[in-house]
């Protein structure tokens, strides 16, 4: 299989990194999963250009990325609306396009959401580290030498010409999750909800929380009404494993939603965002408002099956909701 250079990075924007589905099976070595935060948009982007749904994409945060196409190449942009343009023409999202050699693909700034996904027909040719091409930014490995994209980087792909027949393939409009400024995240209580007061749990489920500016891929820090824990329990617990979506409450009572760059923690966790809402969580940005709604495990599984149904339906060429 021939590898060809597909893009040159003209400007990287504040944070653009290579991410795939993530790195699994190494948690016991302290290695976090990393991976695309909005996995739904990420998977659809790949399918639109004829890649396997786990192929590495670029995760583009908020704005600023400019790429120059080095060959004719199929692409698709999903996730947050960062006003993608090809040369000076706005680019339809959730649709595959063919760029010609020399075209400039730019992301001019966020209209909604936080992270866009760019899939390239033929993927991004990079070695896998511990089974994944995802960039672990804090420990500096995976992706492009463990760092965000820089000006001058060259991306290459496997046989990009084989993907040119995907042009104008698009994902059904009705299946695209909306990106509101106020986000309702569904949660399952636990693992330590028993260690908060009834009042604390009511506060958590009944108050809006603001997303703080020091949020990143490790966690979404929230500010709002303090969540009260039971007076007899200490601030921390014996360190244990954590998973993305779990909501820890440190001593100051301000919740932090864990994302994908950490594997253990020593704070109590009041609730955990359901898997079907993790893609929405990956699109919150500083200044947004978040509220939580308690659901049952059965509700969570129904929502997950519905989401997987959209991906499956698209793969099988169905265009109405499953």
């Amino acid at each position: 299989m021939a590898t060809a250079d597909t893009f040159e990075v003209v400007a990287p924007g504040p944070l653009t990194s290579v991410q795939d589905r993530g790195r699994f099976g190494y948690g016991r070595y302290g290695v976090a999963p990393s991976g695309a935060l909005d996995s739904f948009s990420f998977r659809v982007a790949n399918l639109l250009v004829g890649n396997s749904e786990n192929e590495a994409c670029l995760e583009i945060t908020l704005s600023g990325l400019r790429l120059k196409a080095l060959t004719e190449v199929a692409i698709a942009v999903t996730g947050a609306d960062l006003q993608a343009h090809s040369n000076d023409k706005p680019l339809d999202m959730w649709t595959s396009h063919i760029l010609e050699r020399g075209n400039i693909l730019s992301f001019r700034g966020v209209k909604s959401g936080c992270r866009s996904y760019l899939a390239i027909g033929g993927g991004i040719s990079l070695p896998k580290v511990m089974g994944s091409k995802s960039t672990n930014l804090s420990s500096k490995f995976g992706g492009l030498d463990g760092r965000p994209l820089q000006k001058g980087d060259i991306l290459s792909s496997t046989s990009p010409h084989l993907h040119l027949n995907t042009e104008r393939k698009s994902f059904p409009q009705a299946w695209i999750p909306p990106h509101a400024k106020e986000r309702h995240l569904r949660v399952i209580l636990g693992p330590q909800d028993d260690q908060f007061t009834e009042k604390g749990k009511k506060t958590f489920l009944g108050s809006p929380y603001q997303v703080s500016p020091d949020s990143d891929r490790t966690g979404v820090r929230l500010t709002g009404t303090m969540i009260e824990r039971r007076p007899e329990v200490s601030e921390s617990i014996i360190s244990e494993g954590v998973i993305s979506g779990t909501i820890q409450v440190p001593g100051d009572g301000q919740p932090i939603i864990i994302l994908v760059e950490t594997v253990t923690g020593g704070y109590r966790k009041i609730a955990t965002v359901i898997t079907a809402d993790l893609p929405l969580l990956g699109q919150v940005k500083p200044g947004d408002t978040v509220t939580f709604k308690q659901v049952s495990l059965d509700d969570a599984y129904e929502a997950l099956r519905e989401m997987e149904g959209r991906i499956k339906g698209f793969k099988e060429g169905i265009s109405t909701l499953p």
Binding site: S239, E240, G241, I243, T275, L304
Partner: peptide, 22 residues
């Protein structure tokens, strides 16, 4: 069964709910 993360006094078991019930 997707992943096991053992710690001091507990284990985190990550599973695929579409493949195995609780």
């Amino acid at each position: 069964l997707v992943e096991i993360i053992p710690t001091y006094r507990s284990l985190l078991i990550i599973y695929d709910p579409l493949k195995i019930s609780v």
